[in-house]
């Protein structure tokens, strides 16, 4: 939700950050606690729910069989869709969330467009005819600041949780290939999500910068840099957002910061994912 702050409140927050003090007692490069749950949506092939402080994001992956792109007959497709639920605030009612939805889904597809992130060859079935389409749908339930990072965490976790049914390809009598599902429901393939990037947004407030800004801190932000960081520190996409401009030296500093924090966050997420895999599903009543 958009927070409205007075000028003096903004100055108070900014001065604090310049001295390395944040309103909730975190250090400048600390993330809020991440609550993660896998397989929360039984009808999806993979799903996850992430709570990053007050932000709440639900992601689901559905697999469908469709046609591959003519230019890439051996590969499957991934399609991102982001939905800002009007439950999260009245400003997202109707078409209100459109801009944010497009911004996030375009950045997701940019960050995942690199070949090294996901092996799309696994999703190919019959070259030129059929392949898996992975629909990755993200639902934003609550915006408590830093929604982009939360979305990327949810997407990576949902992909980690995704089980794609194994199919057999048979030749029919007419000489055409056909796709057939195996009888065993526990027969599935899992994609490697090791190289999937996660986003790190770094906000510039005054002379200081912080990661994982809360809604209040976002309201004071003049400029921010979002980068998609892989676990080995490579950056697969980045962008400057908001209406302010930045000095070259501070951009370099922020990139370095992003890289370090991103690698750390990747590690944290991977350990959390293996924990969550075996944890009991609590669902929405938690």
């Amino acid at each position: 939700m958009d927070v409205i702050l007075s000028k003096s409140e903004k100055i108070f927050l900014t001065h604090g950050i310049e001295e390395g003090i944040r309103e909730d007692g975190r250090a400048p490069d600390d993330y809020r606690t991440i609550d993660l749950e896998l397989s929360v949506v039984p009808n999806a092939n993979g799903s996850s729910r992430i709570k990053l402080g007050n932000s709440d994001v639900l992601a689901g992956v559905k697999c469908e069989i469709g046609e591959p792109d003519p230019g890439r007959p051996n590969e499957g497709k991934i399609i991102f869709n982001v939905d800002c639920s009007a439950n999260a605030g009245t400003e997202w009612e109707g078409r209100g969330g459109d801009d944010l939805e497009i911004e996030i889904s375009e950045f997701l597809s940019k960050a995942y467009s690199n070949k090294s992130c996901l092996d799309l060859q696994i999703l190919g079935l019959i070259p030129g005819e059929q392949c898996w389409h992975l629909y990755i749908d993200v639902l934003i339930l609550r915006n408590g600041g830093n929604i982009l990072d939360a979305v990327s965490l949810a997407v990576k976790s949902a992909l980690y949780d995704t089980e794609i049914p194994k199919v057999l390809i048979k030749m029919s009598e007419k000489g055409q290939s056909e796709v057939e599902l195996t009888d065993n429901p526990s027969d599935y393939i899992i994609m490697s999500t090791e190289n999937c990037p996660i986003f790190v947004s770094i906000c510039k407030l005054g002379k200081g910068h912080v990661v994982d800004a809360t809604a209040k801190e976002s309201a004071c932000t003049m400029a921010k840099i979002v980068s998609a960081v892989r676990k080995d520190g490579m950056i697969t996409a980045s962008q400057k957002k908001c209406s302010g401009s930045l000095q070259e030296s501070s951009v370099l500093e922020m990139y370095e910061h992003c890289r370090k924090v991103g690698m750390e966050l990747n590690k944290t997420l991977i350990s959390k994912l293996s924990e969550a895999k075996n944890a009991p599903i609590v669902g929405f009543l938690a």
């Binding site: 690199n114 840099i225 490579m234 697969t236 962008q239």
Partner: peptide, 9 residues
């Protein structure tokens, strides 16, 4: 500032 593709810092 906008970049696509895999790059090191």
């Amino acid at each position: 500032l906008n970049h696509v593709g895999c790059l090191s810092s």
